[in-house]
Amino acid sequence: MGQQQDIYYVPSRSHWPIVAAVVLFLTVFGAAHWLNAEPGDSGFGKTVITIGAIGILCMFFGWFRSVIRESLAGRYNHQVDTSFRMGMMWFIFSEVMFFGAFFGALFYLRNYSVPWLGGDGHGVLTHQFLWNHYAASWGAGGGNGPEHVGGTFGTVEPWGLPLLNTLILLTSSVTVTIAHHALRAGHRGKVLIFLGVTVLLGACFIFSQANEYMEAYRELNLTLHSGVYGATFFMLTGFHGLHVTLGTIMLAIIWLRVLAGHFNKEHHFGFEAVAWYWHFVDVVWLGLFMFVYVL
């Protein structure tokens, strides 16, 4: 039996996948119903979304609980660990491609569609026949298209809150790395401090981003409806903000797991996976800061 300790762990049957499929279905079914709801709808869609969303939280809790128990029972050998690492790496790659679609849209809109509507290059006929008054430019004054969709708006000044947010995220990447080194050196107290700081920095980022959104809506009249400028601004920063929020929750859970003593010097893939995710979120922000705010 000695050799079998190194067998690849194939879990026995589990009910979590079917639970996950059902709650995912409920969430999107409710959402689709809600989006198509007539005025005076009974609110059926919202009820189903709520049930689905609570179900998703319970599913994650239960599924990860069984994974953590298996991990603590020592069932995951080196090869299983490698599978997890590959899984996380390729998941992050898929996230990169998701953001790629929105960055691609930004570059296309900014460099092609808006200038073409303004009479540049091959789209000149649209300009002549439909909107020959339109002088294209990006940002305030032209980025909401020839019909001036959403009205006059101002843009967020990059060297204020966005710069602060950049510094917050870059610092948090450093603190999470310090925490990782401390974990490998076995200094649990130091891990808790620096990981805790990372969680707080993440929370600060979300708070400051929320402030920026409020300022954009209330004072700049920059909204989701402000033509393609508003659409790309809010969709890119919004999806990023969502990822920061998820990342912060994940970091907080890892903080609790460090507190519970789940990790040791060698085995702490959960920590590393979340740290990778956090660095990914950080890198996406640098792209956003550059292409959405500064340029």
């Binding site: 809109l109 298209g145 019909e147 033509g227």
Partner: peptide, 8 residues
């Protein structure tokens, strides 16, 4: 949003 709407 106006991703695919020329007016925006």
């Amino acid at each position: 949003t106006n991703f695919f709407n020329a007016a925006g």
